[in-house]
Design a protein around this nucleic acid. Structure first.
Ligand SMILES: O=c1ccn([C@H]2C[C@H](O)[C@@H](COP(=O)(O)OP(=O)(O)OP(=O)(O)O)O2)c(=O)[nH]1
Ligand SMILES: [Mg+2]
Length: 896
DNA sequence: GAGCAGTTGAT
DNA sequence: ATCAAC
DNA sequence: GCTC
């Protein structure tokens, strides 16, 4: 176990390094270097995959050896099962990488057929030099390993602790507790009496212990005030009544069965359960780590930082800064909050000192405003003015502000981030020289300053008007009393009400049912088979009121989303709603509603309730703060239900909480961007704007290579009136033999198509960035520089005055045009439907095309024992025909 | 009561 | 492996 | 949530 996790760590580190390299090299350099970079990247990639694969294989073998239960599966097939479908997507590259020139290219590369595509590519294009990456398996991991072991113990001993409601850090504890409960499942909650809980639990716990199966996540279980007191109890003490008893029975029964060799081991249910268990274990491990860190002193923790982050690259925003962090804690322990603050500062390049050293320290960061005494104490001075002026004092939000803005903020440089504290410009007491100050700050900055010393004054006066009276701004600004410590600092209030948004401008085109003729070859009953007349009724629909209510309910479920099945509940709603939308006449009765495909009993009842009472009781019952906050957080691009819930449990409630990294949360790069442009990104754009942006991109792409095939996809292609983003598909016909400028040589048959497209995406991205059309990247497929298949996701805008929009670009091999077109046109429900049909017919349909002869693992149909062979993908119609789906124009493929 | 699409990219 | 996204 |  510990070895595995160590490997994972190493792998992860590699990825991080890769990423850094990308940003350093790819961004900053010129055309000439690009190819070099691409080649390097290719090698790294090949190696990475190799390593990864090998590890996987090793594990697999071990697993097989260890568990005789697995013997019913022939080893051969089990290993073929581990092969990613790469070989199938590029059947041309069958031969494994030739052992390149001088250096031995990866010893066992022959075994690594799965990613030979990359290997072939790189060795073909760029002679050898594939050398094993010197993986540093050194020191820093030791302690991590240790922690893992330790964590394990912790898991088995006290699994539940992890999920027992954490004492919500610093933040409104009462709400936190109250709120942690709402995610409760109303249905189950309803039919299970609290009284029943006790007895059931007792029996459940017995069987659970026997099978050593931890209970359901307590976080979802009933709100029990006794929970806190009972922390020490065995993990089973609070299983959700009904479910747990039956489940544990199943679990107990299974093992015997599978031991016999009956090929019927893991039901979906059990898999889900196992996942939950693992998750809990992970959380417990994390907790143990936290626990250990919390026992450090601040000094120790600061000293430990370099080690903790030894494997990561630090960002440079705060480089050159030396921080002294002022807190209010017992020196012997560190709170999570403080630790996360240290983490964040360190990660972004700052130096941190535990003790004041006027020679070194550049900034004093106070965890909150008004900590004058602590500050003086920490600096060993009598009054705040004994601290040299060049040392700036800020509150924590300044740090997060700098990180968000990706530069060092000065007093007044940025309206959006003026949350800082500063010693008031003491008029004459000392030779406070703002100009010099500014200069100093400026040196740290990368951007040219638009601020001047006057700005500071302006900001000061602005601050006076700040809505939040935290430090009594008016008094402070008027005349800072030296005696009054509270007056020494002031905090700029932050306003900036974020609004939830969440625009569902809906379907511009409900389509009417019609579906008389729609028969598949063999199978029927698929949504994709229904040919609906698309009827461009204005967005109004006769059943609009019903739809609105149901949508609201759907949103609630979507926000709550506790387990996997809620996902399907939500798409159930989506389908029902869509059916209602395209129903041309006013629904009168439950029966009438029930006849619609996708509308069942539950929904019919709800519809009746709406018709007769004009409202839905459940809407009132179910809506609560928790749901609202979840919705708010999930509005951040790249924040899903898991993260939103985590934050919520930690006590965060607003976007500002997130901005400030309350409770020490961390944001991924994408989340940071998503947060920054929260409002823009939650708006859909008018169809016309999507067209304009597409036009600009297309033109630039064609400038790079006029032979490209470019199409705009997604909702635009379906002729929706508003578009949530811009989806662009690019390919190039390799048959003319011409190569793209970025392609070095055009070798052999279809490989050439790779080269043809090679680098194109990278170049295009560069141009688009230069022209200010793309403003930031969310993710760039690592093949963007080399492979034919690449995916880009980022953000751009029409011009500097427009809102920012999400932009997706896909490049694909020419022969997959049809499959890609079908995929990228959607809508998603249509895709799922047609894919389901393909699957039921023994095919598999994905964005590359329709595959024949797939053999799926009966235990988990998503696993393919044999990925089959490409059957159709030239055109969309080819695929439709093969599946017996009546042809539908893009705008007729609306199911959601 | 089982099953609900199939995949990529980041971490 | 998990999460989020298309 | 719906369907089979
Ligand atoms: O889960 C998904 C999501 C999307 N797609 C396909 C269909 C979809 O049409 C296309 C583009 O995705 P996007 O999220 O952009 O949806 P859209 O249909 O373009 O709608 P929107 O206007 O919200 O962008 O990718 C899927 O196959 N599965
Ligand atoms: Mg789209």
């Amino acid at each position: 176990m510990s070895r595995e996790s160590r490997e994972a760590r190493i792998y992860q580190r590699f990825l991080v390094e890769e990423r850094e390299r990308y940003s350093d090299e790819a961004r900053a350099q010129d055309e000439d270097d690009m190819r070099e970079w691409i080649e390097k990247a290719e090698k790294r990639k090949a190696i990475m995959y190799e390593e990864h694969d090998k590890r996987r294989k090793k594990r697999k073998t071990e697993a097989i050896n260890e568990s005789p239960a697995a013997t019913f599966l022939p080893e051969a097939s089990s290993s073929s099962l581990t092969q990613p479908p790469a070989s199938l997507s590029a059947p041309v590259h069958v031969e494994p990488a030739p052992p390149g020139g001088k250096r031995p290219s990866s010893p066992d590369s022959a075994a690594q057929t799965s990613h030979s595509r990359y290997a072939v590519n790189s060795s073909a294009r760029s002679p050898r030099l594939i050398k094993r990456m010197p993986m540093r398996m050194t020191a820093p991991d030791d302690d991590a390993t240790a922690s893992d072991t330790r964590a394990l113990d912790a898991v088995s001993a006290t699994a539940t602790i992890a999920s027992s409601p954490p004492s919500a850090p610093d933040l409104t504890p009462p709400t936190a507790v109250q709120l942690a409960t709402p995610p409760l499942d109303k249905e189950k909650g309803a039919d299970t009496e609290p009284a029943v809980v006790a007895p059931t639990v007792a029996s459940a716990s017995a069987s659970n212990v026997a099978t050593s199966t931890p209970p359901d996540a307590p976080s979802t279980s009933a709100p029990s005030p006794t929970k806190k007191k009972k922390r020490e109890l065995p993990p089973t003490f609070l299983s959700p009544p009904k479910a747990s008893s039956s489940k544990s029975a199943t679990v107990a029964a299974r093992p015997t069965k599978s031991a016999k060799g009956a090929p019927k081991p893991p039901t979906k249910r059990e898999i889900q359960r196992a996942e939950k268990t693992k998750k809990e274990a992970r959380e417990a491990a994390k907790k143990a780590q936290e626990e250990r860190e919390s026992r450090m002193t601040h000094q120790e923790y600061i000293a430990y930082l370099p080690q903790k982050y030894a494997t990561r690259n630090r960002k440079s925003v705060l480089q050159g800064c030396v921080f002294l962090y002022i807190h209010q804690e017992n020196k012997m322990r560190t709170s999570v909050q403080s630790r996360r603050c240290y983490d964040l500062m360190w990660e972004h390049g700052a130096e941190i000192v535990a003790e004041f050293d006027p020679e070194r320290v550049t900034h004093i960061i106070s965890c909150k405003p008004k900590l004058v005494n602590q500050t003086c104490q920490a600096c060993n001075v009598k009054t705040i003015h004994d601290i040299p002026e060049r040392i700036k004092t800020f509150i924590w939000t300044w740090v997060t502000g700098c990180i968000s803005a990706n530069r060092i903020l000065t007093a007044a440089s940025d309206d959006n981030y003026k949350s800082f504290i500063d010693r008031p410009p003491i008029p004459e007491s000392k030779k406070f020289n703002p100009r010099r100050h500014e200069e100093r700050m400026r040196r740290n900055e990368h951007d040219s300053a638009e601020e001047s010393s006057e700005d500071e004054a302006v900001a000061d006066s602005k601050q006076k008007t700040g809505p939040i009276p935290v430090a009594g701004p008016s008094t402070v600004v008027a005349a800072p009393e030296k005696d009054d410590p509270l007056a020494e600092f002031y905090e700029q209030a932050r306003y900036e009400a974020e609004d939830a948004v969440s625009g569902d401008e809906d379907d511009a085109e409900p389509d009417v049912d019609a579906g008389p003729s729609s028969k598949a070859k063999a199978l029927k009953g698929f949504q994709c088979d229904i040919v609906g007349a698309h009827l461009s009724i204005g967005s109004e629909c006769v059943n609009e009121d019903i739809v609105r209510k149901l949508e609201e309910l759907m949103k609630i479920h979507d926000a709550r989303r506790e387990n996997e099945s809620d996902k399907f509940r939500v798409i159930g709603y989506r389908k029902a709603i869509a059916a209602l939308r395209r129903h041309p006449t006013r629904i009168q009765t439950a029966e009438e509603a029930g006849k619609l495909q996708g509308v069942g009993n539950k929904t019919s009842e709800k519809i009746m309730e709406i018709i007769s009472t004009g409202g839905l009781e459940r809407l009132k019952t179910e809506r609560n703060d928790g749901v609202d906050v979840m919705e708010l957080f999930r509005g951040i691009y790249s924040v899903g239900s898991t993260v939103a819930r985590q934050w919520y449990t930690l006590g965060l409630r607003t976007l500002d909480d997130v901005r400030e990294r309350k409770a020490g949360i961390r944001l991924s790069a994408a989340q940071e961007i998503g947060l920054r442009y929260y409002d823009d990104l939650n708006q859909r754009m008018p169809r016309a704007e999507a067209g304009e942006i597409y036009g600009m991109i297309k033109q630039r792409a064609l400038d790079l290579d006029p032979k490209l095939d470019i199409e705009i996809m997604g909702s635009y292609r379906r002729r929706k009136e508003t578009c949530g983003d811009i989806d662009i598909l690019i390919t190039r016909d390799p048959c003319d033999g011409k190569t793209h400028a970025g392609a070095s040589r055009c070798l052999l048959h279809t490989t050439s198509s790779y080269h043809t497209c090679l680098g194109l995406l990278m170049k295009l991205l560069r141009v688009l960035h230069q022209d200010g059309i793309l403003t930031e990247d969310l993710s760039v497929s690592h093949g963007a520089g080399t492979a034919l298949e690449a995916k880009y996701m980022g953000i751009g805008r029409r011009d500097a005055t427009s809102k920012r929009r999400r932009i997706d670009i896909l490049t694909i091999p020419h022969e997959q045009w049809g499959g890609a077109l079908l995929y990228f046109t959607g809508d998603d429900i249509f895709n799922r439907s047609i894919r389901l049909k393909a699957s039921k017919m023994g095919y598999s349909l994905n964005q590359r095309g329709l595959y024949k002869g797939v053999i799926r693992d009966p235990r988990d149909r998503t696993v393919k024992l044999d990925s089959g062979e490409l059957f159709a993908s030239r055109t969309e119609r080819e695929i439709f025909d093969a599946l017996g789906v009546p042809w539908q124009e893009p705008w007729e493929r609306v199911r959601g």
